[in-house]
Simulated assay, not measured.
Amino acid sequence: MKRDLAVILSAFILATLIAEIAGATNFGTALTFGQMAFAGALVFVLVRRP
C-alpha cells in the first residue's frame, strides 16, 4: 500500500513540476496537469491490484 501511495503522489508532483518548468501560465495550470497525472496513476494502481 505504501508503494501505491508513493506512485500516486510522485506522479502528481512530477507532472506539476514538469508543467511548471515547461512554462505553464501559472501555478494553478501546473496543478491541473498534476491532478490529471494523479487520476491516471490512481487508475493504474486500482486496475493493477489483484
Rank of each mutant, 00 (worst) to 15 (best):
residue 48 R to Q: 13
residue 7 V to G: 02
residue 28 G to R: 04
residue 27 F to C: 01
residue 11 A to R: 02
residue 15 A to Y: 05
residue 24 A to K: 14
residue 13 I to F: 14
residue 40 G to Q: 01
residue 31 L to C: 06
residue 5 L to I: 13
residue 27 F to V: 03
residue 37 A to W: 06
residue 10 S to H: 10
residue 19 A to K: 06
residue 21 I to R: 11
residue 25 T to I: 10
residue 7 V to C: 11
residue 8 I to V: 11
residue 47 V to D: 03
residue 28 G to Q: 05
residue 25 T to V: 14
residue 14 L to K: 08
residue 38 F to Y: 06
residue 29 T to Y: 13
residue 30 A to M: 07
residue 2 K to Q: 11
residue 17 L to K: 02
residue 34 G to H: 00
residue 5 L to K: 12
residue 9 L to V: 14
residue 45 V to E: 02
residue 24 A to N: 09
residue 26 N to D: 03
residue 44 F to W: 09
residue 42 L to C: 02
residue 42 L to A: 04
residue 22 A to T: 13
residue 16 T to W: 12
residue 27 F to H: 07
residue 1 M to D: 11
residue 40 G to D: 00
residue 47 V to N: 04
residue 38 F to C: 06
residue 29 T to A: 15
residue 37 A to N: 02
residue 29 T to Q: 13
residue 45 V to W: 02
residue 44 F to P: 02
residue 25 T to R: 15
residue 42 L to M: 09
residue 25 T to H: 14
residue 5 L to S: 10
residue 38 F to S: 01
residue 29 T to H: 14
residue 19 A to N: 09
residue 30 A to G: 07
residue 38 F to M: 07
residue 22 A to M: 15
residue 49 R to W: 04
residue 9 L to G: 08
residue 34 G to P: 00
residue 33 F to A: 07
residue 47 V to E: 08
residue 10 S to E: 07
residue 47 V to W: 14
residue 33 F to H: 04
residue 46 L to W: 12
residue 21 I to C: 06
residue 43 V to K: 00
residue 34 G to N: 01
residue 29 T to V: 14
